[in-house]
C-alpha cells in the first residue's frame, strides 16, 4: 500500500505538449507510470509519442477522463492559466490534482481553494515537486511518479516523506535509499503560502497507512503548518517521526525563494517550530544531513523496524 497513488493509478498530464510537461511526462513513462492521457486545449486528437508509448491528447480534462478513466492529473501549465487548469480537473471529478506550476498569483490560489471547498478532489501543490510511490523494479521503476522528482533515488519500502521543498525531499529520500530504507510514498506539498494539501493532511494519511512504519516531516520557516502537524502527531501518531525545519539563518521579512518561506512573526521562525517539534516527541534532525539518521533514532527508541 501507499498513500494518494499506487503503481496502477492512471494519470493525465495538463500541459503535456509544453517543454516542461513533455519532458517530465517522458520520465514518468520511463519510470513505468500509467500516463494515459495528455490535455492541451486545441490539440485534441493528436498523440504524445515517446518510444513505444503513444499517449492520446484531449482538448479537455473531462474528455480525457471519459475516454481513459484517469483519476489523477499533473498540472504543468504556465502560471497565468494554472488556476483554471486546476479547477478544470476539479470539475472533471478527479481524485487528485498535482499542481507543479511555480509562480501562480496568490489571489488565484485563494480563489481556487475557496472554489474547491466541498469538492471531492484533493489538490497537491502548487509549486511542488509532486508525489512518488516507488515501484519494485530497477531504480524503483514500476512505481507511480507524478511531477518532477528524480525517480531513481527512491526505493520501495516503509517510510513516508512529506516536505514543502523539492530538493530537500530528494535529499531525505536519497539518505534513506542510501541506507537501504525504502519509502511508501514521498509527497511534496509545495512552497507557496496557499496550497491545497497541508503537512497535517499527509501525516494523517501516513498514520492510517499500515505499510508506512515511519515518517520524515520536512518544513520551512513561515506559516504554522508544521506546528499544526506536530501537535496532531503528539496526540494521535505513535509511529516514529523525524522532523527538519529549514531557514534557521534566514533573516526576518525576507522571502527565501519559496513564496511561503518568509518569517512574519515570532511563531513562524525555525527555532519556534523546532521547539514545538521537540515538545511533540518528534526527533529533530540537527542538520539536513541527519534526516534519515534522526528517523532511525526515533524508530530505535520506539522499537520499530523501518526496513
Amino acid at each position: 500500500m501507499a498513500i494518494l497513488i499506487t503503481p496502477s493509478t492512471k494519470i493525465l498530464v495538463q500541459g503535456i505538449t509544453g517543454d516542461f510537461g513533455g519532458r517530465h511526462a517522458k520520465l514518468s513513462l520511463d519510470y513505468g507510470t500509467q500516463v494515459v492521457a495528455g490535455v492541451t486545449p486545441g490539440k485534441g486528437g493528436l498523440f504524445f509519442e515517446h518510444g513505444t508509448h503513444k499517449v492520446p491528447i484531449f482538448n479537455s480534462v473531462a474528455d480525457a477522463v471519459k475516454a481513459t478513466g484517469a483519476t489523477v492529473s499533473a498540472v504543468f501549465v504556465p502560471p497565468p492559466f494554472a488556476a483554471d487548469a486546476i479547477l478544470e480537473g476539479v470539475d472533471a471529478g478527479l481524485d487528485l490534482v498535482v499542481a507543479i506550476t511555480e509562480g501562480i498569483p496568490v489571489r488565484d490560489m485563494v480563489r481556487v481553494k475557496r472554489a474547491m471547498a466541498g469538492s471531492k478532489t484533493r489538490l497537491l501543490g502548487p509549486n511542488c515537486p509532486g508525489v512518488v510511490t516507488p515501484g519494485n523494479g530497477k531504480d524503483s521503476s514500476g512505481g507511480c511518479r507524478i511531477g518532477i522528482a528524480p525517480g531513481y533515488i527512491h526505493k520501495n519500502g516503509h517510510v513516508g516523506v512529506v516536505s514543502r521543498s523539492g530538493t530537500l525531499t530528494y535529499e531525505a529520500v536519497f539518505q534513506l535509499t542510501s541506507k537501504n530504507i525504502g519509502q511508501t510514498t514521498c509527497v511534496g506539498i509545495g512552497g507557496d503560502p496557499v496550497n491545497g494539501t497541508s503537512h497535517l493532511d499527509i501525516i494523517k494519511l501516513f498514520n492510517a497507512d499500515p505499510e508506512t512504519h515511519g515518517i520524515i516531516l520536512i518544513g520551512e520557516i513561515g506559516g504554522n503548518a508544521e506546528v499544526e502537524a506536530a501537535r496532531w502527531i503528539k496526540e494521535h501518531c505513535t509511529k516514529p517521526v523525524a522532523g527538519f525545519i529549514a531557514g534557521a539563518t534566514a533573516p526576518a521579512g525576507r522571502r527565501m525563494g519559496h513564496a511561503g518561506a518568509i518569517v512574519g512573526g515570532a511563531e513562524d521562525t525555525a527555532a519556534a517550530k523546532i521547539a514545538v517539534f521537540k515538545e511533540c516527541g518528534i526527533e529533530v534532525a540537527v542538520t539536513p544531513s541527519d534526516m534519515a539518521d534522526a528517523l532511525l533514532r526515533s524508530a530505535k527508541s520506539k522499537g520499530v523496524t523501518l526496513t
Binding site: 516536505s163 514543502r164 521543498s165 523539492g166 530538493t167 530537500l168 525531499t169 535529499e171 512552497g191 520536512i218 520551512e220 520557516i221 527538519f244 529549514a246 531557514g247 534557521a248 539563518t249 534566514a250 525576507r254 527565501m256 525563494g257 519559496h258 518561506a261 525555525a270 540537527v286 542538520t287 539536513p288 544531513s289
Partner: peptide, 25 residues
C-alpha cells in the same frame, strides 16, 4: 550556491551549525 530554495536555506543553516556564517541565499 545551491539548487532549490529549501536546500539553499538548509545549506545556510548547516554552515552556521558548524560555526561559519553564510554570506548569502
Amino acid at each position: 550556491l545551491v539548487n532549490g530554495a529549501g536546500l539553499a536555506m538548509s545549506t545556510m543553516d548547516i554552515i552556521q551549525h558548524f560555526g561559519g556564517t553564510p554570506a548569502n541565499f
